[in-house]
Design a protein around this nucleic acid. Structure first.
Length: 795
DNA sequence: CATTAGAATAACACC
DNA sequence: TATTCTAATG
């Protein structure tokens, strides 16, 4: 019942009058003057132009904070109100479920009615699933195919690799997964992979890709990349099917167009090529998904793809203060090959972007924690900021830990967005595997995951036997197991338990087919399988939490009609919004922050190697660096009123201490828009958790003569002396330089972090020190002092 | 088969 | 450091 039949009816009924572009029009009972419609209120001229250019290709270049969603939703309202399209004739694609949800809500609000009838508003993936279920047989699948997540994908690949007799050690499955994802992102089926790339993965990349695809098909499964790929293949090979969709989906809107990859581009172009009513919204400066196959080229090339396209630029920013905008512009200006936009604002007030250095990551977290509390309370009589209005945006998710630790100890409420997700947790995935088996007993991957969880005495050997039996008979693992049991071919111990397991699955499957109450069924499954009992018996500290999660899972089921519906939801909706009450600071990655805004934003970890990430630069060179820079731009432009950038000179990495230089992006911040808060340490004095609150940053900031402070100069000098890309030691929190006298072997020394130690060797400016507590370390000489001067260390 | 200690290794961002 | 993998032991 996916709306296709109604659709035909609608198609016949919807005879929208053609109208001149840009003019207010009268249409089928719509309001007489659309330009006076409430959804047009408060649109600036550029936005209005974007809303009114309904027919033909439109490219909306929308800078950060320029009201793009407003324009987009108004455009949808306009399409509906003018009678150009019915709700189910508009295809509106976003990248995240959150964005789709928000758009739905806003359109509903604009029109004063629900838009439940907009079935084609969603992510590329969710819309693709809808299409693919309808035409699965065209690519050799059944319409109830399962969608594998990354984990399943990897396990399947390992099997394929093993079957090809390749040493997975030398040729990791991850590498192959990356290759295959890359090909799928470019809509390349195995036969189409360019021969130049066939040498990948020990010359067997394409061969294994083909084997993997065959395996997926036999499992009646797809991975994420397939969802799009299959649809593109169907469109390309079945013009009749494509034609249907072209007729049905009269208007196309695409959000975040700069993030589309080749497959998505083809997907869109195929759908749009007939009527060319496509409106793409994007910002080349916010293209941050190159690693996922996004092609900035798509947006740069739009006018060539759609000749005669109308290009609208949204440049008036409604979000940030001038200083914040200027700082962001200064950074992004270093990128080449931009379409170019100049953001401006009518706003004149506002604080400069704040910059502060710290000795190490812990101190950075401590400082930000205090600063959050200060802001919450309200600085100098200013009004306080709610925790909900503050965010900490990090480059990589592992950076979040330091903040979580700190916030937990000071009891500061926080929420992590996009961290280790609920549905990726071990116990949830196990439970889901049970549900999957209940829904489709032939789901071999699910079978493998839980046959021996909890332990049923079915180890590698027993499982191999089952595999053999299944493969030999060309049946699923469950059937294979059944055969073995009936033959009595399985050894004594596990046999009874396997029998119980197989019977259990049969029973649960029966219940699913009988459409039994699925919430109850889920509980029953977890009980009968012994899964709950397993965690109850587990005495590790995390067991109670896991049981709690299982309860939550069952509760989440209530919102769905059945298990199938739930499973699909989980496969596609990986963002879990836990809307707990109470104000909280948000912690998230820069990527996750795209599209969001906060009055106060903290951007920690601006160190070379971390941000920009060394890996990005190593693998992608200048291209990678530019993408990192766009990420910096995204970060800064999330801030409405206050943006605080910070870096730490030392950080633990894999338990090893490492020092780093402030990010090169810091040098790119235009100095007249930055307040340098004195790097701690440069003026000595106890700075840290125990420091009196009166001595916090605010007061210091007043004195800091911005870029003329000795600290800043030294930062610059150090920066200039060193080559780029080298591992560099800190140029920020420099300890008393005079303390760096010449050391000799055997000297006793002191280091703030490691304590006392003995010099074992000397190498240029580095010392090999055997620390009493921390063990052997290589240390830059500047960071240690003679042991008898330990008291002089200002930290 | 399960358990466990010790070693290896890891970490960038997501639908 | 923290998790995961391997090999050796029970």
């Amino acid at each position: 019942m996916s709306g296709f039949d109604e659709h035909d009816a609608f198609e016949a009924a919807a005879i929208a009058p053609r109208v001149g572009s840009g003019l207010a029009t009268r249409a089928m009972g719509a309001r007489a003057d659309a330009s006076a419609a409430p959804y047009m209120d408060g649109l600036n001229p550029a936005q209005r132009a974007a809303v009114e250019a309904l027919d033909g290709p439109v490219l909306m270049l929308a800078g950060a904070g320029t009201g793009k969603t407003k324009a987009l939703t108004a455009r949808i309202a306009h399409l509906l109100t003018t009678g150009r399209a019915r709700p189910n004739e508009i295809l509106a694609v976003t990248f995240t479920n959150k964005a789709a949800r928000e758009m739905k809500e806003r359109v509903s609000r604009l029109l004063g009615q629900s838009v439940e009838g907009m079935p084609w508003m969603g992510t590329f993936h969710s819309i693709s699933v809808k299409i693919l279920r309808r035409h699965a047989e065209l690519v050799g699948l059944k319409s109830n195919f399962t969608i594998l997540d990354t984990d399943d994908q990897l396990r399947l690949l390992k099997q394929v690799i093993a079957a090809a007799d390749i040493d997975e050690k030398r040729w990791p499955a991850r590498m192959l997964a990356g290759l295959i994802d890359g090909w799928k992102n470019r809509a390349l089926v195995p036969e189409k992979v360019p021969s130049a790339e066939a040498s990948a993965y020990n010359n067997r990349g394409t061969e294994l890709y083909a084997a993997y695809q065959a395996r997926l098909k036999s499992l009646n499964a797809t991975d994420f990349g397939d969802l799009l790929l299959h649809v593109v293949v169907i469109f390309q090979t079945h013009p009749d099917v494509l034609g249907q969709y072209q007729r049905w989906l009269k208007y196309i809107l695409v959000d975040e167009y700069q993030d589309t990859n080749v497959a998505q581009y083809l997907w869109l172009r195929l759908l749009a090529q007939a009527h060319r009513n496509i409106c793409c919204v994007g910002d080349d400066d916010q293209s941050i998904y190159g690693w996922r196959g996004a092609e900035v080229g798509n947006i740069l090339r739009f006018e060539k793809d759609f000749p005669g396209a109308k290009v609208v630029r949204l440049e008036q920013n409604y979000r940030s203060t001038p200083h914040i905008l200027a700082a962001a512009s200064g950074v992004i200006a270093a990128n080449a090959g931009r379409l170019g936009k100049t953001l401006w604002t009518e706003e004149t007030e506002g604080e400069k972007v704040r910059l502060i250095g710290h000795w190490d990551g812990e101190e950075e977290a401590r400082w930000i924690g205090e600063e959050v509390e200060t802001l919450q309370r309200g600085r100098r009589g200013a009004k306080g900021i709610s925790l909900d209005d503050m965010a900490i945006l990090v480059r990589a998710s592992h950076q979040m830990r330091a903040f979580e630790d700190r916030f937990l100890t000071i009891g500061l409420p926080y929420r992590v967005i996009g961290g280790p997700r609920f549905y990726e947790r071990l116990e949830i995935r196990d439970a889901m595997a049970y549900f999957r088996l209940a829904v489709s007993p032939e789901d071999d991957l699910a079978f493998e995951r839980v046959v021996n969880t909890p332990k049923r005495g079915l180890g590698d050997k027993a499982q191999q036997t089952i595999q053999m039996a299944a493969r030999g008979n060309g049946v699923s693992l469950l059937e294979g197991a059944r055969v073995l049991l009936s033959e009595g071919a399985i050894s004594g111990k596990g046999a009874g338990q396997l029998r119980a397991f197989v019977d259990g699955v049969d029973r649960w499957h029966g219940a699913v087919q009988a459409a039994a109450d699925h919430v109850r069924l889920a509980e029953t499954i977890l009980e009968e399988s012994g899964y709950t009992a397993m965690w109850q018996a587990d005495k590790t500290p995390e067991a109670p939490g896991r049981l709690e999660n299982l309860k939550e899972l069952v509760k989440a089921l209530e919102q769905f009609e059945n298990l199938q519906g739930f499973l699909e939801h989980v496969a596609l909706i990986m963002d879990n919004e836990t809307d707990e009450a109470g104000a909280k600071v948000s912690i998230m990655t820069l990527h996750a922050a795209k599209g969001l805004e906060f009055p106060a934003v903290f951007l920690p970890g601006w160190e070379d190697g971390l941000f920009p990430s060394q890996r990005s630069m190593d693998e992608q060179g200048l291209k990678g660096l530019e993408e990192e820079r766009r990420l910096a731009y995204v970060g800064i432009t999330r801030a409405e009123e206050l943006c605080t950038i910070s870096f730490a000179s030392n950080r633990r990495v894999y338990g090893q201490w490492q020092s780093a230089m402030p990010s090169r992006f810091i040098d790119e911040l235009p100095e007249e828009h930055v307040d340098v808060l004195t790097p701690p340490g440069l003026y000595g004095g106890g700075y840290g958790a125990a420091a009196p609150r009166a001595a916090t940053i605010e007061d210091r900031a007043m004195k800091a003569d911005v870029y003329n402070s000795p600290g800043w100069k030294r930062l610059q000098e150090n920066a200039n002396q060193r080559g780029m890309g080298q591992p560099r030691e800190s140029r920020a929190a420099v300890i008393d330089l005079k303390a760096v006298s010449s050391f000799t072997e055997g000297d006793r020394v002191f280091h703030v972090k490691f304590g006392y130690g003995t010099v074992e060797g000397i190498e240029a400016d580095k010392l090999d020190v055997e620390f009493d507590k921390a063990g052997p370390k290589k240390i830059v000489a500047r960071f240690v002092v003679p042991a008898d001067r330990a008291d002089d260390v200002p930290f």
